[in-house]
Design a protein around this nucleic acid. Structure first.
Lengths: 228, 228
DNA sequence: CGCTATAATGACCATACGGTCAATAGTCTA
DNA sequence: TAGACTATTGACCGTATGGTCATTATAGCG
């Protein structure tokens, strides 16, 4: 019972180096807000950190400032620079590149803090999401779409709308796995590599075919009676 | 300016039939909570409805009761019974069935109230999501996975793990479109039918191949091979 | 029209929130 | 060890929240 944590009553007041205290606060805030959302209170967070809530306001003038910092910590500087080279390396097959990238990307984002905070931010209407998705579009979606066009035998400077949609589709499958796991709380596969191999294969086998207009026209969507 | 709405000052107190008032409250709550999340206040909601917040408590004893009602309204009774027959109709090709179903399904859920509330509920940890996804798995994912196995030449009573994952992937692509539109606020295609045709084609062309373990190794994307 | 049942309200309560500030207590240096 | 610097705190403020209740006013009826 000589554990000096807050469990068995009063924790002793500890005087830390401000930079370390700040790190602890940010770290704790990342976890806390990812769990309860940004309507969580400063008092609750402070209690979890074992400090008074007044101290939080010494390090961050407002709650909004703390939240901004959490965003920054989670999303900016989350892109691995090595991925640029990986996605661009034409000496490696597209299949290989996609599998490697998405396995690593999924591993990077597949945690509750990232996924939940990202979605919380989207619901709250922050611009962070749109900025982040623009980055994804530029660095992942568009290049993949261009490679896809090449794979389908088409040549052109820019990727078509359809190729972009298909590329977003692949991305969506990856993200949806994380959503099912961390937002809906359902049990999903833990075999990340296997999952990525599966959907990348599906993508490379199916997407070029879907790009051919003739094949699509072959399929008729006859609308059912418009109900309800 | 003889409009008797709340815009030009005081709205006259109106005495409605309780059932209609209740309907108005639920309808308004669905919209309100989908916009601001469930941390929205009863007073705010009441102001939007042009009534006092005390009246809300006459119809719903607690805020939680209102929220429950919103869930019920949005998710239960949202499954179109015609879809059961549609998905099960073996006289129609799987391609046709998938395109029809997902075009209608997407049309049904592709609105801010549904998508945002569903995700809010997931973040809040309600069981509604898991119940709903179990329904989706039973009625959509599993049957599609079985049909997929058949398409790939496999026969068995139950669908394999991989087939289920692939089927979830298709579903995820559809849902991700709605997420991009209503949660991230990015501009995405409004051509629902075209989008669904695209990803269903990709699914049917790619997923059977992805199910074959041998085929996966065969894939060699050789981009930029000069002289081909 | 006058009466009544009850839909609707305003004022109120306890609590929880973001934010402030003077007082307190660790830690490091002389 | 004495002192000073400052990280940390408890008490406090104004506001907003979920929820209650006696009072008020409106629609329907005789």
């Amino acid at each position: 019972m000589q554990d000096d944590r807050q469990a068995s009553g009063q924790a002793k007041r500890k005087r830390l180096d401000p930079r370390q205290r700040e790190r602890e606060i940010v770290e704790g805030a990342v976890l806390y807000f990812s769990e309860v959302g940004f309507s969580g209170s400063m008092r609750d967070l402070a209690a979890r950190l074992g400090i008074s809530h007044a101290l939080l306001f010494r390090y961050f003038p407002t709650k909004e400032a703390l939240v901004d910092r959490v965003y920054e910590r989670l999303f900016l500087s989350r892109w691995n620079p090595a991925w640029d080279a990986l996605l661009d390396d034409r000496s490696v097959s597209l299949s290989e590149r996609l599998m490697r990238f998405y396995a690593q990307y999924l591993a990077a984002i597949d945690n509750p803090a990232w996924v939940r905070t990202f979605v919380y931010a989207g619901l709250a209407g922050f611009n962070i999401n749109q900025r982040y998705l623009k980055l994804i579009e530029r660095k992942v979606i568009a290049p993949v779409a261009r490679d896809l066009e090449k794979l389908a035998g088409r040549h052109g400077p820019a990727a078509s709308e359809k190729a972009l949609e298909l590329s977003w589709g692949l991305h969506g499958e990856v993200f949806y796995l994380a959503i099912r796991r961390w937002i809906y709380g359902t049990r999903v596969t833990t075999d990340v590599e296997g999952f990525v191999a599966l959907i990348v294969t599906k993508f490379l086998e199916g997407a070029p075919a879907a790009l051919q207009p003739v094949r699509r026209a072959r399929i008729r969507a006859s609308p059912l009676t418009p109900g309800s």
